[in-house]
């Protein structure tokens, strides 16, 4: 099987990982296509160097998250403006006591976190150990543990506030 064909098969088989991370950071459909192309390009560039002994899904999470985090750093200003609007809209939804499904609730909660916190939470929910997360995001395991505790506290506060 040629490298191209193998790459296409892998991407299509794991489209859930790529799409879910892209969506967590870019919920709008227009942005989603742009960022997905960026991610696919980085995955393709990194593919020849991918060592088969590493888990494929781990490699996909690592490249996808790092590509998005780099892109977000570039358009930080724009992202800040968007998150203010989003925050405002979500607060209105919470105040109106709108019923929320699990996925919507998750989208709301994750939209309240900053880019690094989102990455940590996603990897933690995927069941990665602190050491693995640290390797993937170039952090120390202690730092990961501290940050995850802060995220949990923040989410609890947010949830309590939304239920009021």
């Amino acid at each position: 099987m040629s490298l191209e064909k193998e790459f296409i098969t892998i991407v299509q088989q794991h489209s859930g990982i790529i799409n879910s991370i892209c969506r967590a950071y870019y919920p709008d459909a227009d942005d989603l296509n742009d960022v997905r192309q960026d991610v696919l390009l980085q995955l393709w560039r990194a593919f020849p160097a991918f060592r088969r002994e590493a888990k494929l899904s781990t490699w996909l999470y690592q490249v996808t998250l790092n590509t998005i985090l780099t892109r977000r750093k570039k358009d930080r200003h724009q992202a800040r403006n968007e998150s203010i609007d989003e925050h405002h809209l979500n607060q209105l939804a919470a105040e109106a006591n709108l019923p929320v499904e699990d996925a919507q609730e998750f989208s709301w909660l994750i939209s309240q976190l900053d880019d690094d916190q989102k990455a940590l939470l996603i990897l933690s929910l995927e069941g990665y150990a602190n050491k693995e997360i640290a390797n993937m995001l170039n952090l120390t395991p202690t730092n990961v543990s501290t940050r995850l505790n802060r995220i949990k506290t923040k989410l609890k506060d947010l949830y309590r506030h939304a239920l009021r």
Binding site: N19, A103, S107, L155
Partner: peptide
């Protein structure tokens, strides 16, 4: 609940074919 939310989010995103 958070895990269930993430699973549902992934399920919805996974239905988008590349």
């Amino acid at each position: 609940n958070l895990k269930a939310g993430w699973t549902e989010h992934k399920r919805q995103a996974g239905s988008d074919h590349i």
